[in-house]
């Protein structure tokens, strides 16, 4: 059982969903392109506009940077584990890595709010050395 930070389980998909897409990549910047590409294809399925897709790809890129960059979480593990779940017309993305149990990003500052404003939900947790960034994006207007 995971312990969530904050009062609510934000940026977690509803329990009853389709099987997720799982992608594990080496914990290095040059592999983030694979994560971004996956996000592009999944976001397109969801009917995101080019603008929304651009924002989401940017946000995911920064979420990975958060785990990888030495000034931020500086993951100690060798891989980034990504989980993509489509549910209720939204795309839920979780990127996790092993990290020091005391690693905490600078949540709540201008930078964090910048990132948060590109997506519909942004959460983060560190459970005994498993750091995870979760975000959610859905089309502003339902088309189809």
């Amino acid at each position: 059982m995971r312990s969530e930070q904050g009062a609510h389980d934000g940026a977690l998909p509803p329990a009853d969903t389709e099987p997720p897409v799982l992608l594990t990549v080496p914990a290095a910047r040059e592999y983030v392109v694979l994560v971004r590409s996956a996000v592009g294809h999944l976001g397109a399925r969801l009917g995101l506009t080019m603008e929304e897709l651009g924002d989401l790809r940017l946000a995911v890129d920064e979420a990975c940077a958060l785990l990888l960059l030495p000034d931020e979480i500086a993951a100690t593990g060798s891989v980034l584990e990504c989980r993509f779940t489509e549910s209720g017309g939204a795309l839920w993305i979780a990127v996790a890595a092993e990290a020091s149990p005391t690693s905490v990003p600078q949540v709540g500052g201008f930078g964090w709010n910048l990132l948060a404003s590109l997506v519909d939900d942004l959460q983060w947790s560190n459970d005994d050395g498993r750091a995870e960034v979760r975000l959610m994006k859905q089309p502003a207007v339902r088309r189809l």
Partner: peptide, 25 residues
Amino acid sequence: REALKPLLARLSARDKQILLMRFFR
């Protein structure tokens, strides 16, 4: 973040990227 959303929506992708590099990273 809610106040930022409409403001960022006016910026180009590159401008958003620069802001993130400067203030997020």
